[in-house]
């Protein structure tokens, strides 16, 4: 439902991002909205959770983004025997120098892909999530900052699969967005089948932006104007989740902030200087689904619940 409108474009042209979205779209066919959400999540300085069955292109998406953004990439495959130290790093004794030397773990990268995060034990999960939240790691009493920018894309299998430890709600909240890629449609799948492996093509991508430029862009995004009527709209949505019998509990104030910053990023990607209700509606499912529990199924809220929520609130 994207429309080209003539309303004013901000000074910093998001042109490289148009290319980034376009080139990523050539790796993951037919998923432009999801790619856009993932990039918006990055621009809003949040972390992304992708929940899907294996083989849907989660890793490829993370890989492609890392390449296009020129970010230092590392991947952690979560398993049930993964220990916190395997993520953060350990100190080892160097005999020739007679001192301990810190070997940084895979978390010390700009873009970390935490694959199948719900296969690890809660202890290991929380080590990652703490690093995500704090932006630093404390090993053996020494606090070490993580590189900037720092962006985690975690993937998880649907909770009902065997051998998974579902993330508790408090930790799900650390992710700005959760998206699902889902099966490609027929044309997209045909294209994929015809084009051969997507992983190799992801490796061929070149960076379109330097990671050093990213913080400035993130600041620009955070400064996107949200007018009073728009804040009213966000508030009305938050309020509705808290009084809607479809949900067990409503969205937290932190979720509200997340919604607004995601909407800002969405607006920026659209080349606008201000947030409009469309931005909020576009990011709402990704921001709200994993934070809400449906009253009927006791699982997370479904996209239909969110659609219903949107339909119940008039645009102010």
């Amino acid at each position: 439902m994207m429309l080209k409108s003539k309303i004013s474009v901000h000074s910093g042209s998001p042109q490289p991002f148009d290319q980034i979205l376009q080139q990523a779209g050539q790796i993951i066919f037919g998923k432009s909205t999801e790619i856009r959400l993932a990039v918006a999540c990055l621009l809003a300085n949040g972390h992304l959770l992708i929940e899907d069955l294996p083989g849907m292109g989660k890793t490829t998406l993370a890989h492609a983004l890392a390449r296009l953004l020129g970010m230092e990439f590392s991947r952690i495959q979560f398993t049930s025997d993964l220990l916190p130290a395997d993520i953060t790093g350990v100190s080892i004794f160097e005999r020739d120098r007679s001192e301990f030397r810190f070997l940084p773990g895979p978390i010390f990268a700009q873009l970390v892909l935490a694959d199948e995060i719900n296969r690890a034990t809660p202890k290991t999960q929380s080590a990652l999530l703490e690093a995500m939240e704090e932006g630093q790691v404390t090993v053996e009493g020494i606090t070490r900052p993580l590189p900037r920018p720092f962006f985690v894309i975690a993937t998880q299998n649907p909770a009902h699969q065997i051998g998974t430890f579902p993330l508790p709600e408090s930790q799900l909240d650390r992710f700005l967005m959760r998206i699902a890629l889902g099966y490609p449609d027929r044309t997209a799948e045909r294209e994929l089948l015809a084009s051969g492996g997507r992983r190799s093509r992801a490796d061929e991508l070149h960076r379109l932006i330097s990671p050093e430029a990213l913080p400035a862009i993130q600041q620009e995004v955070a400064a996107i104007h949200a007018a009073a009527p728009l804040i009213d709209y966000v508030q009305a949505l938050l309020d509705a989740t808290r009084h809607n019998p479809a949900f067990q509990h409503g969205l937290s104030p932190r979720a509200g902030l997340a919604l607004l910053s995601a909407a800002r990023a969405w607006a920026w990607l659209d080349g606008r200087e201000m947030v409009i209700p469309d931005d909020v509606q576009a990011v709402l499912p990704a921001v709200a689904c994993h934070r809400l529990k449906a009253a009927r199924t006791a699982g997370n809220a479904q996209i239909e619940d969110i659609t219903q929520l949107i339909h119940s609130i008039a645009i102010p």
Partner: peptide
């Protein structure tokens, strides 16, 4: 109508 929408968005949600 797109012009109306643009003008409205600008004046209602713009800075």
């Amino acid at each position: 109508f797109q012009n109306v929408v643009d003008a409205y968005l600008q004046v209602r949600y713009g800075k």
